[in-house]
């Protein structure tokens, strides 16, 4: 069955065809059911039911009922007249996300990167490090200039922004090249399954 489905998905490379369509329908249907059940047991039951009806000896944590009520409000979308209640849990999740992610981005993308970019432009006795540090600082500086939205990119300022784009392109190129090999190994894995595990042509 694994080989039939594997070949069905691969057939998409030729063109959209009934075999692929069948595999797609199967994949989407099975995965939708799979994730519903996984979430039901690992999140809904584990967080709500198990906290309100815990194993013997554990205290009941009724505070999780609030989550249950919010979840119920979410389902009120199905009743048009009172569907607007679903905006409450929606607001709760979006607001919480905004707060938590704001902090996350400020730390890992912001302050940590600024700290790592502050480097000495002269490293005594180490030309490699000196050149590397200068390129790193200049590259980051020019890249940040590109992201300014308040000023037209003209004249010297425009040239600096353009240099910033060049650095971004080098970043994309390097990242692209780096990923190619990783993706190739995935393909080799599937070919190994078809020609080795299934057909036994590779030992």
């Amino acid at each position: 069955m694994g080989a039939f489905l594997t070949l069905g998905i691969i057939s998409f490379l030729y063109k959209d065809n009934p075999w692929y369509k069948f595999c797609e329908a199967l994949f989407v249907g099975i995965s939708a059911g799979y994730w519903f059940c996984t979430v039901f047991w690992s999140q809904f039951v584990a967080k709500l039911w198990d906290n309100i009806y815990p194993t013997a000896g554990q205290p009941r944590q009724y505070v999780y009922l609030v989550g249950g009520i919010l979840g119920l409000m979410m389902l009120l979308r199905l009743v048009p007249k009172i569907g607007w209640f679903s905006r409450w849990p929606l607001a709760f999740v979006v607001g919480g996300t905004a707060g938590a992610y704001l902090i996350g981005y400020a730390l890992s993308n912001g302050m940590k990167q600024v700290k790592s970019t502050i480097l000495p432009l002269w490293v005594s006795g180490n030309l490699n490090a000196t050149v590397g540090n200068i390129i790193l600082v200049v590259g980051t500086f020019c890249g940040l200039i590109y992201f300014f939205f308040s000023k037209e990119q003209k004249g010297t300022y425009g040239k600096v922004a353009k240099l910033g784009i060049f650095f971004l392109m080098i970043t994309f190129g390097a990242s692209f090249g780096y990923t190619v090999m990783a993706r190739m190994s995935l393909l080799i894995g599937r070919m190994d399954f078809l020609f080795g595990t299934w057909l036994g042509l590779i030992k």
Binding site: L102, G110, V114, L136, G143, L144, L168, M169, I170, T171
Partner: peptide
């Protein structure tokens, strides 16, 4: 990977941090 790639990457990360902070603040 460690020098020019990282320079561009840092610019994107810092920019994205400010964008995320501004979006978060507007939402809150």
């Amino acid at each position: 990977m460690n020098v020019p790639q990282l320079a561009g990457k840092r610019a994107i990360l810092i920019g994205a941090a400010l964008g995320a902070i501004a979006t978060g603040l507007k939402v809150i």
